[in-house]
Write a protein that binds this DNA or RNA. Structure first.
Lengths: 222, 222
DNA sequence: AAATAGAAAATTGTATACAATTTAGTTTGA
DNA sequence: TCAAACTAAATTGTATACAATTTTCTATTT
């Protein structure tokens, strides 16, 4: 909505939430944010509204805004949807990607190799985003890409922790290799299945994933 | 966000957009809406923000808000996603619905029969919503249900027109019957496929659908 | 007469002021 | 000493005022 003030504000907060700088459950007081960004409460409220609409913050009427803490049930639900959307992206990408796009995807993949070998989590995280972004674009469905990206961002604070597990990096990299093959060969069904699995169970059991999450990040009674 | 004022305002506007009372492309001036609802511009802006986040209105910075007009390309993209989400709902519903829920779905289905036979479009539309809502609930995935419902609402102004086509009602009713069967029998794959087709091509060609849309409703250059 | 430039009006974005509700702190009672 | 109730402070929701940009209308020139 707002152009000059509220928009950068939204982006900054979104970034901090997605990266985990602002942990789920953190209170977001309008006055505090207004002072921090040297603006009035009005654009702050707009930004919070927008973040609430994405689901990144939760606004309880008359009781302020907090960084959204996702309950266990809801998180499983979101991963279930995420898997399907990622799978769909992969399927469409396998069908529709141009030759150049396939080459670029391969390049993105290789770019992650050194990070994977050196266990550079932050580096691999960036390469990982790039790889998946390529697939989103390749689906040739901008709306699907937007939705999938939004959900990925919303789950990012949790997925990020997951990638910190030992050996998760090399596993992820190997899976990317298989996905790249399937897409390169135009094998829609296989690309879909691989991407679905890649996201959901992340090659290990979902229970393992849950077990590694700090309990503070999970809302207890929701 | 806001409780007393902005929330009902949002619901009213959303309803009017979804039902087509406010046609795509209609300008939404803040002052005008403020006077109409006897409130200030502040809650109006909040409501518009929320509607923009759902995608029901488009806000161009410094240039006001209009009811979102979906371009042809984007509409096809959204239908593609919608089909997948509906199919997923059907698949999960076939797997997870309780006996009672299946009975309720059957009841919803039968409820639409008279409307279908009498060509009562408004009546059938309501029954149709009920039928699909049952499936959403049955997926036991509240997040998926929310997303699917939101997309359905966003496409509602266009789908509504489609249902007005001759014989579309009885076709839809017959398809519902098959879907009900698949879900009742727990045939996940078939339920998924049937619901996918039900949404997308709507049993006829997508081109036919496009051809029946008034050109005013489609944004020409986007 | 048409087109362009300028000015005025209207509309959006932001800030501030006010009202209402919630939360926290203190006091009083059992 | 603990609990409950009342008061005060803080925070959110709404309204209004002001600033900035866009749009429209008019006037002048070609």
């Amino acid at each position: 909505m707002s152009t000059k003030t509220a928009s950068p504000l939204r982006e900054t907060l979104e970034q901090e939430i997605v990266t985990g700088q602002l942990a789920p459950g953190t209170r977001l007081e309008e006055m505090g944010l207004a002072e921090r960004f040297h603006v009035s409460r009005t654009p702050v409220r707009e930004a919070l509204n927008q973040l609430a609409s994405i689901g990144l913050v939760e606004i309880r009427p008359r009781r302020g805004a907090v960084v959204a803490a996702i309950g266990l049930k809801q998180m499983m639900e979101m991963f279930e949807v995420m898997a399907e959307l990622e799978g769909m992206c992969g399927q469409l990408a396998a069908r529709r990607m141009s030759g150049d796009e396939r080459k670029k995807l391969a390049a993105c993949h290789l770019q992650g190799q050194p990070f994977s070998e050196n266990e550079d989590h932050d580096g691999y995280y960036a390469a990982n985003v790039c790889f998946h972004e390529c697939i989103y674009q390749g689906s040739r469905n901008a709306y699907l890409a937007d939705q999938t990206r939004a959900l990925r961002n919303r789950l990012a604070p949790y997925r990020r922790l997951q990638l910190r597990q030992r050996q998760r990096l090399s596993e992820s990299f190997q899976e990317h290799g298989k996905i790249l093959d399937a897409i390169t060969q135009g094998d829609e069904a296989r690309a879909k299945q691989l991407l679905r699995d890649h996201v959901t169970v992340q090659s290990g059991s979902f229970t393992d994933f849950i077990a590694t999450l700090p309990s503070e990040l999970i809302r207890n009674s929701a």
